[in-house]
């Protein structure tokens, strides 16, 4: 089951070459890249899933949509015990984010949110749903599909423990969508607000209404859009420090090249360092006077340039 795609496939390191241009393109698209594509998310239902969990998966899928895959069938697997099937799915659909939903007596309404690195589970956090309001329960207007949300994290709890810190990073990674160079101001319609109080996480999704305020910045009003979830952190599986560090590694080619001899101080003032060669003071042109003029005999020995010029002329 694991051998769906051979491991370690670099674009040029392949013994059997792709036969068609299309196959080549497909493989190149999956190969490691310098600037990566937007992470895709897969939504997987466990062996048993309550309607709450199923709806939660569907609603979050709707928020995530162009960069997501919803698995329709049940998959009897337990991510915290055996990650192989998740890794297989990740490889199969080229997704590095996942949300797994299940429901049992011991852990009712369970969501496992996680991310992958190199098709292996990096971080995984188990969240229990305590309260859930569906997208369709609220009869307000919704935002269009594929809107890049504004993400807001509130509460000091997000910085207190390593679990919370990783969860915050994971949620940013999960919901941020594509990295864009510019954004339309009127298109900022969606806010995802995460509030942490102790072990509880309140996830709220609002539609933004931009009201006239009389000045340049508009006044913001929010309208509940759904889905809203009250979550509680259960088990966690975090990557070891060196693996996490490895995954954070940035390619050298993308780092901005340091410009020589240019520096900035704390106030942002630009300084340039200029290297000058030592000036030859003997050849310095001083004030021209008849008395300081060189004699014809000196001219012949001292200055090499003038006789040459004479020759040319």
């Amino acid at each position: 089951m694991q051998e769906g795609i051979p491991q370690k496939m670099d674009s040029l390191d392949r013994v059997v070459k792709p036969k068609t241009k299309r196959a080549k393109r497909f493989l190149e698209n999956r190969a490691p890249k310098l600037t990566e594509n937007t992470k895709n998310a897969m939504f997987i239902k466990g062996g048993n899933a309550s309607s709450t969990v199923t709806d939660a998966l569907k609603d979050i899928y709707a928020l995530k949509k162009p960069f997501a895959v919803l698995y329709k069938k049940k998959n009897v697997t337990r991510p915290f015990e055996d990650q192989t099937s998740l890794e297989f799915f990740s490889k199969k659909s080229d997704c590095s984010l996942f949300l797994f939903g299940s429901h049992n007596k011991k852990r009712p309404n369970n969501l496992v949110i996680g991310r992958m690195y190199d098709y292996h589970v990096l971080d995984m956090v188990e969240l229990g749903i305590e309260k859930f309001v569906r997208l369709r329960d609220l009869k307000n207007s919704k935002c269009p599909e594929g809107t890049k949300p504004m993400l807001i994290f509130a509460g000091d709890a997000f910085d207190l423990s390593e679990n919370h810190r990783r969860l915050k990073s994971l949620l940013i990674d999960f919901f941020r969508g594509p990295t864009v160079p510019s954004v339309r101001l009127a298109g900022l319609e969606h806010v995802l607000h995460f509030t942490a109080v102790d072990e509880k996480i309140y996830m709220r999704s609002y539609k933004v209404l931009l009201k006239k305020s009389g000045c340049k910045i508009p006044r913001i009003e929010l309208e509940d859009m759904g889905p809203s979830l009250d979550l509680v952190i259960r088990r966690t599986h975090l990557a070891s420090d060196d693996l996490y560090k490895l995954s954070l590694k940035q390619p050298k080619a993308l780092k901005p090249k340091k410009k020589k001899n240019i520096s900035h101080d704390a106030f942002g003032t630009k300084y340039g360092r200029i290297h000058m060669q030592k000036q030859d003071l003997d050849k310095l042109q001083t004030r021209k006077m008849k008395g300081l003029k060189k004699r014809p005999a000196e001219m012949k020995t001292g200055n090499e340039h003038s006789p040459k010029k004479a020759k040319l002329g």
Partner: peptide
Amino acid sequence: AEGGSGPVVVKLPEPSTRLPREKPLPKPRP
């Protein structure tokens, strides 16, 4: 946008939050 006729867009800076990569760095060709 679109050379002065489109909607108002703002230029976003590079993201400053460091997030893990999806796949390892591409290896140089041997």
